[in-house]
Write a protein that binds this DNA or RNA. Structure first.
Length: 892
RNA sequence: GCGGGGGUGCCGGAGUGGUCAAACGGACUAGGUUGAGGGCCUAGUGGCUUAGUGCCUGCGCGGGUUCGAAACCCGUCUCCCGCACCA
C-alpha cells in the first residue's frame, strides 16, 4: 500500500512543473470564475480553511473537466491589526511577520493539492497592490464619493484605533472585545449611503445568493418610508424636524424626545436651570451606556429640558424630553412621541406621567387612555383628529402626509439604517490615505504621479498611538499645490477596502498601469464565491458598494461582483465551535500528516452538505481514509482476466456505472458533494461485489476508470494515481467529466418480466418509461369518480403538449378544482354522505364512455395494450401493488 | 420582540405525496483471514413470526387533509442562528 502522502507529493510536483492550472483568457471558451474568500495570513490553516478550499477546489476541478475555462486564484488579505499587534508583542515589524505567515500558510495550502493558478497570487500588503486602493480613493474623492467630517467615533482604548459601527459587537471591539469609548475626530468617509437604494434593489437580482444573506443585508440597509415633519420650537421660528412612519398618529403627539447627545440639546439648555442636570444625564447615558446592550430591554431613562414644541397640525404645545432610547444616528435624532400608539413612547409616558391621547380606535369599542396597559398598534378608525376623523388609519397615513406636504410643513422621505462607511484607521499596517494637509491649501490629494504613498519601513511599534504620526520623514512633506510646508495624512484605510475589489485584481494581477484592465472584462463577475457566513454583511456589502462605485468612475461595467454565493457552515467538534479554550481544536496539519490531503478533503466534503455545520469526527476521517484505500486497491490488485463474456453481471455493473455518473453529476451541480460521494461509495461497493466472481477486464477497467474520474474533484492525487496505474499517459486533471447513456440505465435487464409503477401525475416520464421499456401492457389504476378527470387530463395533455412542466401545471389545477368541489371526485367517505357529492359527478355510463375513449388513445400513443383496474378498493389495490392515480407498465 | 432554519436508528446524516423510511459513512455484533492484535473481507444491527417471506411499530408531541403523510395544513413543545429601543 503506497503511502498517501508520497502519492500526493508526486502529483503536486507534476502539476506544478507542467503548469496545467495556469489560465489565460480565451474568448472561444466559456469562462468560470471560482473564488474562495482569501485568508488573513495568520500562519496556520484551520479546519474552516480546509473546508472552504475543499469545496472550491472540487468545484473548480469539476468545471474544468466540464470544459470551462476556469479562473481559480489565491492570495492574502495581508494588512490589518493582528500583524501590528504581533509586531508590538515581538518587537518586530508587521511586514516580516506577515510575509512569514504567508509563506507558512502557502506551504499548507500547497500540501492540500489545490488547483490554484499560483502565478496570479496577490498580497494586499505590497505597494503594488495597495497603490490601487489609493488610486481609487482619489478617483472617488474626485467624484465626491469620499469626504472628511468630524463625528463621534467608536474608540477602542486597547487597539488605540477607531472602529466602524459595523466593527462594534455588543459594545465591544470586534477583535479584542474591550469596551468601546466615544470620541470626536476628523475622519474620512465613503458615501455608501448614496448607494443604499441600489444595494437594496440589486439584491433581488442575486438569485444564486442564499436567502438569509440577502435578508441580513436588507435588514442592515434598513429602508423605511415615512414623512419628515417640522415642528416649531415654542416662541421662535426654529424648525424641529422629525421623521415618522406613522403620520396618522400626528394628532396623538403628547411630547417630543431628542437623542441626548444631539448638539441642539446643549444649545437649548444653555444658561437655563436645566443645563447642569442635562450635562450630567448626557455624560451618564451617552458615554457609559452607549454600547451596553443587555438581553432584556434596557430601562428607559430621560428628562424634561424645559422647552416646548408646537404641533403644526393642531397647534398643540408639547414638552421636549431627552431620553436614552432615541438614537442620534437614525432619522433626525429627534422623534415625536405618541404614547397611545407606540409601545416605547407608552412606557416612557407612564414612567414620566405624560398624558396619553388616543387617536385610533379599534373596530367595535373605544380605548380609554386611563385603562390602557399597553400601546394600541393595530389598525383602526381615526378619532380626535380634526378633518381626518372617521377614516381608516392606514388611509390616514397617506392623506395626512399629503396634507403636511401641501402645507409646506414637511415631505415624504425614505430613511436607511445604513451609515456612511468610516474608513480612517489610526494604525500603521494599512494603506496610507493619499492626502496632504497644507495650512494654505487645506486637504490636498496626492497627485497620481506620486503614487504609491508607501508605508515607511522605519517605525516604532510601542503599542500606543499610530507609529506613522511620530515618523517625521513620512509626515513632513511639501504641499503639492503651493510647495509650502505641509503634513501628510497619517490615517490608514480600513482593510475592508483591500478585500472590496481583489476579485478584479486576480484577473490582471501584474498590471502596473491600472488596477486592472481588459482581462477583468472577460472574467468578472465571479461565478461562484465561497466563504463563511460571518462575512454576510460587512465584506459582501462593501465589495458590492465598491464595485458600483468603480463602475461610476468608469473602471468597470460590472455592477455586482459575485453572481453566486455559497456560505459554508462551521466546522465543530463535540457539538461546539473549535476553540482553544474548549480544547477541541483539530489541526489540519496533523490530519494531513496522518492520512494525506485527499482523506482530509474527502471527509470534509462527505460529512455534511456545504451550508451545514460539520461535526468533525476522527472515526469519520478514518472511514474516508479506508474508502480511499479501497478505491486505490481497485487499480492496484492484480485481477485475473478470464474472458470477455458479457452476461447479466456485466450488464448490471454497466447499468450501475451509467446511473452513478448521472446521479453524481446532478449532485455535484447542486453542490451536494456528500451525496455525490455516497453514490461513488455505492458504486465502489458494487465493483467489489462484481470482482468476487469472474471478471471481464474491459468492463472492469472501465468501471475503475469511471470511479477515478468521478472521485478526482474530491481526491485528486489518488485519482491521478489510479489513472496512471490503468495505463493512461495523460493527467486525470485534464480529462473530461464522464458521460452517461440513459438507455444503459436499466438495472434489471435480466428480468424477463417486470412491473414498473409510476404516478400518473408525471405523465411525461410514464411515456418515456413505456417507450424505453417497450411496454407490452399498461395498467391504469383508477378509482371511482376522480378517475375520469385524471384519465381525461392524461388524454388531453398528451394531445396538447409533451412539456412535462405544462402537464404538471394542469394536474395541479385539477387538484385545486377538486378542492373547490367542481370536479368529479368521490372517495368512500364522500360516497357515504350523499349530500356532499360533487355536482358534476359522472354517471356510470358517461364514465365508461370516457374511459373507453381515453384507453383507445393511450393504446395508440404507447403502442401497447391498456388495461384499467379499479383501485379504490384498497384490498384489490394492494393485491396489485398499486394505488389509484398510478400507472403500471408491464414489460415482457 | 422581529426575521431565518431545524427536530428522522446508538452517532453524523439521506429521503419532502405512493414503487422505498433510514441511502452513504461511523459505531457495535458475528463469521472469515492472521501466531495474536491491528488491518482487510463478508453478513447483521426497531418488534413479532415463518426462515423463501409475511405482518406490525416507527420520522419531537397532538389534531386535520388524503385512497395513501416523515413530507401538505392547523396547533403545540423544543433547539440553533441572525438582528434588536430604527420612530
Amino acid at each position: 500500500m503506497a503511502d498517501f502522502n508520497t502519492i500526493a507529493q508526486k502529483w503536486q510536483k507534476k502539476w506544478k512543473e507542467s503548469k496545467i492550472f495556469q489560465t489565460a483568457e480565451d474568448p472561444k471558451k466559456e469562462k468560470f470564475y471560482c473564488l474562495e474568500m482569501f485568508p488573513y495570513p495568520s500562519g496556520k490553516l484551520h479546519m474552516g480553511h480546509v473546508r472552504n478550499y475543499a469545496i472550491g477546489d472540487a468545484l473548480a476541478r469539476y468545471k474544468r473537466m466540464k470544459g470551462f475555462n476556469v479562473l481559480y486564484p489565491m492570495g492574502y488579505d495581508a494588512l490589518g491589526l493582528p500583524a501590528e499587534n504581533a509586531a508590538i508583542k515581538n518587537q518586530s515589524h508587521p511586514k516580516e511577520w506577515t510575509l512569514h505567515s504567508i509563506k507558512l500558510m502557502k506551504e499548507q495550502q500547497e500540501q492540500l493539492g489545490l488547483s490554484y493558478d499560483w502565478s496570479r497570487e496577490i498580497a494586499t500588503c505590497l505597494p503594488e497592490y495597495y497603490r490601487w486602493n489609493q488610486f481609487m480613493f482619489l478617483k472617488f474623492l474626485e467624484k465626491g464619493l469620499a469626504y472628511r467630517a468630524k463625528s463621534p467615533i467608536n474608540w477602542c482604548p486597547k487597539c488605540k484605533t477607531v472602529l466602524a459601527n459595523e466593527q462594534v459587537e455588543e459594545g465591544g471591539c470586534w477583535r479584542c472585545h474591550s469596551a468601546v469609548e466615544v470620541k470626536d475626530l476628523e475622519q474620512w468617509f465613503l458615501k455608501i449611503k448614496d448607494y443604499a437604494e441600489e444595494l437594496l434593489k440589486d439584491l433581488d437580482k442575486l438569485e444564486n445568493w442564499p436567502e438569509r444573506v440577502k435578508t441580513m443585508q436588507r435588514n442592515w440597509i434598513g429602508r423605511s418610508e415615512g414623512t419628515l415633519i417640522n415642528f416649531k420650537l415654542k416662541g421662535t421660528d426654529e424648525d424641529i424636524p422629525i421623521f415618522t412612519t406613522r403620520p396618522d398618529t400626528l394628532y396623538g403627539v403628547t411630547y417630543m424626545v431628542f437623542a441626548p447627545e444631539h448638539p441642539k440639546v446643549m444649545e437649548l439648555v444653555k444658561g437655563t436651570e436645566h443645563e447642569e442636570k442635562v450635562k450630567k444625564f448626557i455624560n451618564r447615558v451617552v458615554i457609559q451606556e452607549k454600547f451596553e446592550r443587555t438581553a432584556e430591554d434596557k430601562e428607559k431613562e430621560g428628562m424634561f429640558i424645559g422647552k416646548y414644541a408646537i404641533n403644526p397640525l393642531n397647534g398643540d404645545e408639547v414638552p421636549i424630553y431627552i431620553a436614552n432610547f432615541v438614537l442620534l444616528e437614525y432619522g433626525t435624532g429627534m422623534i415625536m412621541a405618541v404614547p397611545a400608539h407606540d409601545q416605547r413612547d407608552f412606557e416612557f409616558a407612564k414612567k414620566f406621567d405624560i398624558p396619553i391621547k388616543v387617536v385610533i380606535n379599534p373596530d367595535g369599542y373605544d380605548l380609554d387612555p386611563e385603562k390602557m396597559s399597553r400601546a394600541y398598534t393595530e389598525e383602526g378608525t381615526m378619532i380626535n383628529s380634526g378633518d381626518f376623523e372617521g377614516i381608516n388609519n392606514m388611509d390616514a397615513i397617506e392623506e395626512i402626509s399629503k396634507f403636511v406636504e401641501k402645507k409646506g410643513w414637511g415631505e415624504k422621505t425614505v430613511q436607511y439604517k445604513l451609515r456612511d462607511w468610516l474608513i480612517s484607521r489610526q494604525r500603521y499596517w494599512g494603506t496610507p490615505i493619499p492626502v496632504i494637509y497644507c495650512g494654505k491649501c487645506g486637504a490636498v490629494p496626492v497627485p497620481e504621479k506620486d503614487l504609491p504613498v508607501v508605508l515607511p519601513d522605519k517605525a516604532r511599534f510601542s503599542g500606543e498611538g499610530n507609529p506613522l504620526e511620530t515618523n517625521e520623514e513620512f509626515v513632513n512633506v511639501k504641499c503639492p499645490e503651493c510647495n509650502g510646508t505641509a503634513r501628510r495624512e497619517t490615517d490608514t484605510m480600513d482593510t475592508f477596502i483591500d478585500s472590496s475589489w481583489y476579485p478584479f485584481r486576480y484577473c490582471d494581477p501584474r498590471n502596473d498601469k491600472k488596477p486592472f484592465g481588459k482581462p477583468a472584462e472577460y472574467w468578472m463577475p465571479v461565478d461562484q464565491y465561497i466563504g463563511g457566513i460571518e462575512h454576510a454583511i460587512l465584506h459582501l456589502l462593501y465589495a458590492r458598494f465598491w464595485t458600483k462605485a468603480m463602475r461610476d468612475v468608469g473602471l468597470t461595467k460590472v455592477s455586482e461582483p459575485f453572481s453566486a454565493l455559497l456560505c459554508q457552515g462551521m466546522v465543530i467538534k463535540d457539538g461546539r465551535k473549535m476553540s482553544k479554550s474548549f480544547g477541541n481544536v483539530v489541526d489540519p496539519g496533523e490530519i494531513i500528516a496522518k492520512y494525506g490531503p485527499d482523506t482530509a478533503r474527502l471527509f470534509m466534503l462527505f460529512a455534511a452538505l456545504p451550508e451545514k455545520e460539520l461535526e468533525w469526527s476522527d472515526e469519520g476521517a478514518n472511514g474516508a481514509f479506508r474508502f480511499l484505500k479501497r478505491v486505490l486497491s481497485l487499480a492496484e490488485e492484480n485481477i485475473a482476466a478470464p474472458g470477455e463474456e458479457t452476461g447479466n453481471r456485466e450488464k448490471n455493473l454497466i447499468a450501475k456505472q451509467h446511473k452513478t455518473i448521472k446521479i453524481v453529476t446532478e449532485h455535484v451541480e447542486r453542490f451536494e458533494f456528500s451525496l455525490a460521494i455516497g453514490r461513488i461509495m455505492e458504486f465502489v461497493n458494487a465493483i467489489y461485489k462484481y470482482r468476487e466472481g469472474e471478471i471481464n477486464k474491459v468492463v472492469y477497467d472501465d468501471a475503475v476508470r469511471t470511479t477515478a474520474l468521478l472521485i478526482s474533484p474530491f481526491a485528486p492525487h489518488i485519482a491521478e494515481e489510479i489513472w496512471e496505474k490503468l495505463g493512461s499517459k495523460t493527467m486525470i486533471s485534464l480529462e473530461k467529466w464522464p458521460e452517461y447513456d440513459e438507455s444503459m440505465i436499466d438495472e434489471k435487464a435480466e428480468q424477463a418480466e417486470e412491473i414498473v409503477h409510476n404516478t400518473i401525475s408525471d405523465i411525461h416520464s410514464v411515456m418515456e418509461l413505456a417507450k424505453i421499456k417497450k411496454a407490452e401492457k399498461i395498467t391504469l389504476f383508477v378509482s371511482k369518480g376522480w378517475k375520469y378527470e385524471y384519465v381525461r387530463m392524461l388524454k388531453q395533455e398528451l394531445e396538447k403538449t409533451r412539456d412535462p412542466s405544462e402537464i404538471m401545471k394542469a394536474m395541479m389545477l385539477t387538484d385545486l378544482k377538486q378542492h373547490g368541489g367542481e370536479v368529479a371526485k368521490m372517495t368512500p367517505k364522500l360516497a357515504a354522505d350523499e349530500s356532499r357529492l360533487p355536482k358534476i359527478l359522472l354517471s356510470q355510463e358517461e364514465e365508461l364512455k370516457a374511459l373507453e375513449s381515453a384507453k383507445e388513445f393511450i393504446e395508440k400513443e404507447f403502442e401497447a395494450k391498456v388495461e384499467m383496474v379499479r383501485a379504490d378498493d384498497s384490498k384489490e389495490a394492494k393485491a396489485n401493488n398499486a394505488m389509484p392515480g398510478k400507472v403500471a407498465i408491464l414489460v415482457k
